[in-house]
Simulated scan of single mutants.
Amino acid sequence: MYHIRRDHSHLRWSRKIPPVLTISSGETVTFDAIDSSNGQINKDSTATAVSSLDLSTVNPVFGPIHVRGAEPGDVLKVEVLDLETADWGWSAIIPGFGLLADEFPKPSLQIWNVDKNQGYVSYKDTIHVPLRPFLGCMGVAPATDEDLSLVPPTDAGGNMDCRDLTVGSVVYIPVQTQGALFSCGDGHAAQGHGEVCGTAIETAIKATLRFEVCKGLSWVTSPHYENPPRVLKGQDSAEYAVMGIDGDVLEATKKATRGIIAWLTHFKGLSQSEAYMLTSVAGNFHLVETVNVPHYIVSMSLPLGVFRSNG
């Protein structure tokens, strides 16, 4: 088995970055990835660490690896075999970042304890979010000679932040350049669909991935994935949801988020910042309705099983 170390990191998508490893189709690689702050936040950090973040070094990815036989037009099949998080993680409100950035201008930091044996991530022992690790970033080098930012995803993958890409998932990424030049990183212990405050439960992660070059899958022009059946440990099916209704989908999304934050502060006693971060790591967006124009409906739901106390 091959291994990618923490010092095998880079901060842009580029086919000009030389590979640190060359493998054959069917082989397995482990990745040791530091958290998305690139080590700038630790267990003892406070909100001042968020204020002083060097954003030019955040969200590193690890690699790239060259896969023999991978050519433009092929598809790289990536099987997620194992994901091991650290025993802690963090969430933050970063000024100027997130869905409601204008409404949350002050930095805030929340440190979570990861209990791997019990299968949850806790805060103040009153909120238990089921442990559901995944890699926020998985992608291949672009076809262009231009260096691309790590932040926005593309059809070549990248910073997709899709919580469904966890152990047992199979991801298909269209190859853009010879050898694919795959990299990954941005470990998360848990995240809601939407990641509304801009962070999940960020954590260092060790990932084990298997790669296969697939020919003739011409319909895969953006990332595809498949998942096995799953039962989420420690999570009941009850949920509370708020609908956001507006002629603009983005504004409807904001309305739903504001609504769930208001419910959390009123009924669960959380501060505005705590509610915003909990919504980011455990809440889930659904596009409920699109045909009754001119209005759209987006709901934000929160599983009630994350609360461990009455109220």
Score class of each variant (00 low, 15 high):
299 S>C: 08
249 V>H: 10
252 A>D: 04
287 L>A: 10
265 T>S: 11
281 V>P: 02
275 A>C: 06
288 V>T: 13
281 V>F: 05
284 N>S: 11
279 T>S: 11
261 I>L: 09
275 A>T: 03
253 T>Q: 00
262 A>P: 10
277 M>L: 08
277 M>A: 05
288 V>I: 13
263 W>T: 13
257 T>P: 11
259 G>W: 02
286 H>T: 15
298 V>M: 03
291 V>P: 15
262 A>T: 11
251 E>R: 13
297 I>H: 12
281 V>A: 03
255 K>G: 07
273 S>A: 14
250 L>M: 12
295 H>K: 14
271 S>A: 06
263 W>N: 10
284 N>F: 11
252 A>M: 00
249 V>F: 10
291 V>M: 14
302 L>Y: 08
261 I>E: 06
254 K>R: 01
287 L>P: 13
265 T>L: 07
285 F>T: 06
257 T>F: 07
268 K>W: 07
294 P>Q: 09
298 V>I: 06
251 E>N: 14
254 K>C: 01
262 A>D: 09
270 L>T: 00
295 H>M: 15
270 L>A: 00
281 V>R: 00
250 L>E: 11
252 A>I: 04
298 V>S: 01
290 T>H: 12
302 L>E: 00
281 V>L: 06
254 K>V: 04
283 G>N: 04
300 M>Y: 10
260 I>K: 01
270 L>S: 03
264 L>T: 05
251 E>P: 11
265 T>E: 06
274 E>A: 08
